[in-house]
Amino acid sequence: MKILIIEDEAALAQSMGAYLSDENYLCEFAATYKEAIDKIDVYEYDCILLDLMLPGGDGIKILEEIKAQQKQDGVIIISAKNSLEDKIKGLQIGADDYLTKPFHLSELAARIYSIIRRKQFGNANIVTQNELSINLPAKTVTVNDQPVTLTRKEFDLLLYFISNKNKVISKSALAEHLSGEIADMLDSYDFVYVHIKNLKKKLQEAGCSNYLKTLYGTGYKWEI
């Protein structure tokens, strides 16, 4: 899986690269408008992370260029501007997702995972891991071919863990993921614990081995 990180802030680009490289992604970098255009012209990527404010040009133009070349690369806009107009404009031109800075790397990984899966598998998008099988478009889960009923939040969490395999995820990252746009709700992270406990219980009762480990008290890791 090839990912192009178009980001002028070296420290941030490097963090993203370091986190994603562990997950079998091959990351390439572009720090300026010109570099980005040069790379897009020549190579195909599974996913492009696009910062909108770049030295030498507007990120939106890069997006237009990708679409003009009719490339199938998934595009996630990563912007410091949390403005609705930018978001709508980006999605209209054809970006697949929009992420506002600052974000958790685990959130980024989850978004990339979901876009790449959608692009490559379409409706046959089923993630299988030993006895566990997740049907992404239908949002259903089976263990040993037996269906497990999960709430929307539990399903969300499961997918989040699957897309961040073998990574330590903090409770605050999970809280932020679950609360979505209503970030002001984040004073108490306790609600995360309840959902995780239920998810673990349901999976275990269905006969799924315990992949979800608790670390350091409030951190979590999906180990395989």
Binding site: E9, A11, L12, S15, M16, A18, Y19, D22, M53, A80, K81, N82, T100, K101, P102, F103, H104, L105, S106, K167, V168, I169, S170, A173, G219
Partner: peptide, 21 residues
């Protein structure tokens, strides 16, 4: 101001996430 502040915040956030690993 939005841009200038969010980017360093994003760097801190990403470094903390890496440190966690």
């Amino acid at each position: 101001a939005s841009h200038e502040l969010q980017t360093p915040l994003a760097i801190i956030q990403s470094k903390l996430d890496l440190l966690l690993q």
